[in-house]
Amino acid sequence: MFNVFKVRIYPNQQQEIALNKNLGCARFVWNYYLNKTNSQYQATGKGMTYCQMAKDLTQLKKNTDYEWLAESTAATLQQALKNLESAFKNFFKKRAKFPKFKSKHKKQSIRYPESCSLKNKGLKLPKLGIVKAKISKKIVGKIKSVTVSKTSTGKYFASILFEADNLIINKNELVSGIDLGLSSKRDSF
């Protein structure tokens, strides 16, 4: 069984810079290949597949104008291409609207599909090391992926997808609630 657990993360200054670079590179790759696929579709009647985009991305990263893409984790860039391909498939199956260009002024996210773990009250992410996190539940199981998001207000969150049989809640966390004393009256039918 798969479960998702969302936590607030607190990157230090260097990690924040690296995360912002990763977010920017993934956004660039999405926008670049959305534009390239649209142009190819208009010219030939066929768009680009994930394999074609991934092969082209490898060549693009070798171009001196785009060397900065190598600073990002390769897996996050490939994931951006997979997400773009899924967006196109969902559009053509009439399950979603046509993919839009991404903006840095709205919520942004990247997915780390591998090499993530929980260590020392933090979340270990590729090329970032251990990022401080507020983890209120113990995750027992294999982490499948981590999606890091940045809100428009500059806060960072991580959604951890893991495979487990059960979810254990730390006993130290306190839960509080408020009884507002509301009642509702319904007319008789």
Results as ranks from 00 to 15, higher is better:
1 M>F: 10
2 F>A: 11
4 V>C: 11
4 V>S: 15
5 F>N: 11
6 K>L: 07
6 K>R: 15
6 K>M: 02
7 V>K: 04
9 I>Q: 01
12 N>I: 02
14 Q>I: 14
15 Q>Y: 08
15 Q>R: 13
16 E>V: 08
17 I>Y: 08
21 K>Q: 15
22 N>G: 13
22 N>P: 00
23 L>P: 03
24 G>H: 04
24 G>I: 03
25 C>R: 03
27 R>F: 00
31 N>R: 06
31 N>C: 04
33 Y>T: 02
35 N>K: 15
36 K>T: 07
37 T>M: 03
38 N>E: 10
38 N>K: 15
38 N>S: 15
39 S>V: 08
39 S>Y: 08
40 Q>H: 14
41 Y>T: 11
42 Q>T: 02
46 K>N: 15
46 K>M: 06
47 G>A: 02
47 G>N: 09
50 Y>M: 04
50 Y>W: 00
52 Q>R: 08
52 Q>F: 03
53 M>L: 00
56 D>C: 04
57 L>H: 04
58 T>K: 10
58 T>S: 10
60 L>P: 01
60 L>C: 01
61 K>L: 04
64 T>H: 13
64 T>C: 05
65 D>W: 03
66 Y>D: 01
67 E>P: 06
69 L>A: 01
71 E>K: 12
74 A>L: 10
76 T>K: 10
81 L>M: 02
81 L>C: 01
83 N>G: 00
86 S>A: 12
86 S>K: 14
86 S>C: 09
87 A>G: 07
88 F>K: 10
89 K>M: 05
91 F>G: 05
92 F>R: 05
94 K>R: 14
94 K>L: 09
94 K>V: 06
95 R>T: 05
97 K>S: 14
98 F>K: 13
99 P>H: 07
103 S>D: 07
104 K>A: 06
108 Q>M: 07
109 S>C: 09
110 I>A: 04
111 R>L: 12
112 Y>K: 01
112 Y>D: 03
113 P>G: 02
113 P>V: 02
114 E>I: 02
115 S>I: 07
119 K>P: 05
122 G>P: 09
122 G>D: 04
133 A>T: 02
134 K>E: 14
134 K>I: 14
134 K>F: 09
139 I>S: 10
140 V>D: 15
141 G>A: 08
147 T>G: 00
152 S>G: 02
152 S>W: 06
156 Y>I: 09
157 F>P: 00
157 F>E: 03
158 A>K: 03
163 E>A: 15
164 A>E: 01
164 A>T: 04
165 D>Q: 14
166 N>F: 03
168 I>F: 08
169 I>R: 13
172 N>T: 12
173 E>Q: 08
173 E>R: 09
177 G>P: 02
179 D>K: 13
180 L>V: 12
181 G>C: 11
182 L>I: 12
184 S>P: 00
186 R>G: 07
186 R>N: 13
186 R>F: 15
186 R>P: 00
188 S>A: 12
189 F>M: 08
